[in-house]
Amino acid sequence: KTLTYGSGVPERAAANRLGVLPMLDRLTQVSDGEIRFTPILGGQLVSIPGGLPAIRDHVVDAGFFLTQFHPADMPAASFMAELTGLGTSPLATIGALNEIFFTRCPACMADMARQNVVPMMIQSATPLVLQCTGQVSDAPDLAGLRVAVIGQPEMRWIEALGAIPVRSSVSDILSALQLGQADCGLLPLSWIRSYGLQDTIRSVIDRPQGIITGAVPLAINADTWSTLPQTTRQKMIAAMPGIIHDYVTSAYVGPDDAVRGEMAERLHVSDGGPTLAAAWASFQKAEPTALIEAARAHGLENPEGFVAMAVETFRIWHEDLLPRFTDDPDTFTALLKARVYDAVHP
């Protein structure tokens, strides 16, 4: 059976080339050719805000959507996109996110069912780092600078630094940096190369400062899902933990490392020093309070309880589990299977 996969993410984005397309191939493989995908990428058929209705109304069999674009349709699931400030490790963050989404947030699953979609995973991207057009190496240098951010949750961190957050669309953020409208951007490191920012960026504070969350890179129309044989669905679910590991490493960690390797000689790179570390620590301490406010704005039931659960799940993945799976893909995969995907019923 051939399924169409629609996505508004630019065809050439690493997330597609190194993440989504290999994932679709792997699913074809594990289903022994039972299902194949025809990708229609780059907004040719579906835009990013149009992803959800297109999957729901069966314009495509499967596709990509952003939860934060639909707070009214999915109050709980869209709140997952506010958790940017909790994560620093890509693998720990995606583990925590999927554990919350699939096993600790029944409201999220109810949101998905109401929208007639079956999510295969929820994703987190790559750590955000500060990239500046001038010389910046620790927190005091940042006071008063304009920092372009893509998402709302990042603004709290920039304000905590005493800088001015400027919310930008992806289409504006690049020219904002290049034309001087912003002094810095809080962006994935690999964007330096993929958007040709090497002509513009002079210094980088290479310390993880949150990870953008909330996209569902593969959701399947519920009617399509129900027509797939039970065994195929089981095989797909069983393959997800391994797929997620490879997805994060090749689409996000890999491109970052490649840029990290080549930029050291061209750019001024620092970790922000103790001042930035202290600022980040106190920001993370204050973040739950801000998240409770946000959860209230999303209309979540029991905001305090939900945020406490989310913070604790992130803590478990970052503090208890991360030491066990650093440099050990199999342990990560086993943990994700045991803690999350064993509980997902195909």
């Binding site: 934060q68 674009f69 707070p71 009214a72 349709d73 869209s78 709302q152 603004m155 406010e293 946000a294 209230r296 704005a297 999303h298």
Partner: peptide
């Protein structure tokens, strides 16, 4: 959309 009270959430602002 009207029945859903369709909105976006920006920080704590709807």
């Amino acid at each position: 959309a009207l029945k859903q009270g369709e909105h976006l959430v920006i920080g704590t602002m709807r």
